[in-house]
Nucleic acid binder design. Structure first.
Length: 328
DNA sequence: CGACTTTGACCGGCGC
DNA sequence: GCGCCGGTCAAAGTCG
């Protein structure tokens, strides 16, 4: 990740999501002011996560079972508060960058969501297995080690194709949030200008190429940025080691997010039940004020102060349904 | 013993 | 070409 968002253009969908304008990319300077805990993202390059709402057909999509199924991605992590953004069809670029399109969705919700990865048959492939054509360190004299070298990968000049990505900014005490899938950590890197490392995970299911990155915002350490890349081509594992998250997931036609799990130890910021049945897109200003109010999470009056900004399915372009073969 | 994490090395893209 | 940086590999270590 770089110091600056480079060529990124982004567009905050919640600002004009009334008319569902396809993001043509407002400039970097037009970003809105943010609330306390998300203001860190303003300066965090990781925050410049795009979604490409370039689809022309913006007819109302059908009900989603979950964002995961809608996008064919992993479930968002369990947590009390989640900001999300989508990158649908990213142009080839450095994997570290989160940029790509335009349009940004911020979703707040409590907790983990229902699962159901679609059989989407994603564009299986690719870049990860072939990613490297490097040689093992010690292979010179053709010892047995040379066998370890898998293959050659891509032809030269062939740019990597990036899987669609979905990023969540989550207020949570734990870095790696339980999301129902099993992950294997395959790397950790220090993040430039951040005291917090970035961890790289890969889905442990065979032939599943989904990856995710987890890092903590350096400006607001209470916020975790989780980025999913790719689509699961399998259901959530029936049994999850040390957790019953998968089994505990609540499936509702409208529900993306379910009750928090103990594993996630979410920080209670919103009323626990408020988002239980509605995934909501909320303007940044709203989150702003809510945050500044600092109402206790279980204040019953607080519930009524939360305006309804509509359901997620009302603003997500139908392109995702098509792209990921989602069948309602 | 298998599954998973840690960690240093390596690779490739990109800017200068 | 060089250096920086993000991403990945894979050997070694850890854990249950």
């Amino acid at each position: 990740m770089s110091d600056e968002p480079k060529d990124l253009f982004y567009h905050y969908l919640f600002q004009d999501n009334q008319h569902l304008e396809s993001g043509t990319g407002s400039s970097y300077n037009e970003k809105p002011s943010y609330n306390n805990y998300s203001q860190g993202f303003d300066d965090d390059p990781s925050n410049y996560i795009m979604s490409s709402f370039n689809d022309q057909s913006l007819e109302r999509p059908v009900v989603y079972n979950s964002m995961a199924s809608a996008f064919g991605l992993s479930r968002p992590p369990s947590s009390s508060q989640v900001f999300a953004s989508v990158e649908s069809n990213p142009k080839p670029r450095e994997v570290g960058d989160l940029g790509g399109g335009s349009g940004d969705v911020i979703v707040t919700a409590n907790s983990s969501i229902s699962s159901s990865s679609t059989e989407a048959g994603a564009e299986e492939d690719s870049d990860h297995k072939s990613s490297k054509d490097r040689q093992p360190k010690e292979l010179e004299d053709g010892g047995e080690s040379s066998k370890k070298v898998p293959s050659k990968a891509k032809k030269k000049g062939e740019k990597k194709q990036r899987e669609p990505r979905f990023a969540f900014m989550t207020k949570s005490e734990v870095d790696h949030l339980e999301d129902g899938y099993r992950w294997r950590k395959y790397g950790q890197k220090a993040v430039k200008n951040s005291p917090y490392p970035r961890s790289y995970y890969r889905c442990t299911t065979q032939k599943c190429t989904v990856k995710k990155r987890v890092e903590r915002s350096y400006q607001d350490p209470t916020v975790v940025i989780t980025t999913y890349e790719g689509q699961h081509n399998h259901p959530i594992p029936a049994t999850l080691r040390g957790s019953s998250t998968a089994a505990a997931a609540i499936f509702s036609p409208y529900c993306m997010f379910t009750q928090p799990t103990a594993a996630a130890r979410p920080v209670p910021t919103f009323p626990q039940h408020y988002f239980a049945t509605h995934a909501q897109i909320m303007p940044a200003q709203t989150m702003n004020s809510q945050h500044h109010e600092q109402n206790p999470p279980n204040n019953p009056h607080h519930d009524h102060q939360l305006p309804d900004y509509g359901l997620l399915q009302d603003i997500i372009p139908s392109m995702f349904l098509k792209q990921y073969n989602y069948e309602p």
